[in-house]
Computed example of a mutant assay.
Amino acid sequence: MPFNYYVIYKPFQVLTRFGKEDGKDSLADYFKVPSDVYPVGRLDYDSEGLLILSNDKSLNNKLLDPKFAHEREYWVQVDGAIDDPAIRQLRQGVQITVDGKKYQTRRCNAEIFNTEPVVPERNPPIRFRKNIPAPWIKLVLREGKNRQVRKMTAAAGFPTLRLIRYRIAGVTIEGIQPGQMREMSQREIYGLLFG
């Protein structure tokens, strides 16, 4: 049986599944794929960006097994003028709560964007406040706890306003907009993820 591989840009406020829940939009409202295709991993309802869809179970295992520690790059708009001490704190790891227990995040790459990244408009947009800056930072993690990025920026004192997953290993959302999809071959996606 041939496997299918899709790279999608999951829009804001869309569930990372094909079934409905509480009248919320799901992937089925945006993407038409074979019925045995499912999301590899997850992306929160209020987050947006890169999601891989496939019916290749071995891809799922390789991508989600912590021992492989694939890089995941997030573009995060934060509330307030984040500074170098907060960035250093994020790089070294911060304490968050996971399943009711304290957890120290691993070291990661963190930096402030010098110029605002070019990203699609979000609907609805983040709340604009004239006197409070909302800069963008880049976080590159090698782990993926539930709501980890939001918990990390909050722990550093700068809550997340908007969160976009831009990249997993070599796969990015470059050139696709929210609600769009790009089909890939097994060779292509495996090369970008594990090459």
Rank of each mutant, 00 (worst) to 15 (best):
Y6H: 13
P11Q: 05
T16H: 02
D22I: 04
G23E: 11
K24W: 04
D25H: 13
S26A: 12
A28C: 10
V33N: 10
P34S: 12
R42M: 05
D46S: 13
G49P: 04
L50P: 01
I52N: 01
S54T: 14
S58I: 13
L59T: 10
L63G: 01
L64I: 07
L64S: 08
D65F: 08
A69D: 13
H70T: 02
R72V: 02
E73H: 02
Q77V: 00
A81Q: 13
I82A: 09
A86P: 08
A86C: 07
Q92K: 14
Q95S: 14
I96T: 09
Y103F: 15
Y103H: 15
T105H: 07
R106Y: 03
R107M: 12
R107W: 10
A110Y: 07
I112E: 06
T115W: 01
V118C: 10
P120L: 06
P124H: 09
P124T: 02
R129T: 13
K130H: 11
I132T: 15
I132W: 08
P133V: 05
W136H: 08
V140M: 00
E143Q: 13
G144W: 00
Q148F: 03
Q148M: 05
Q148E: 15
A154S: 14
P159A: 01
L163V: 10
L163M: 05
V171L: 05
I176M: 07
M184P: 05
Y190Q: 00
L192E: 13
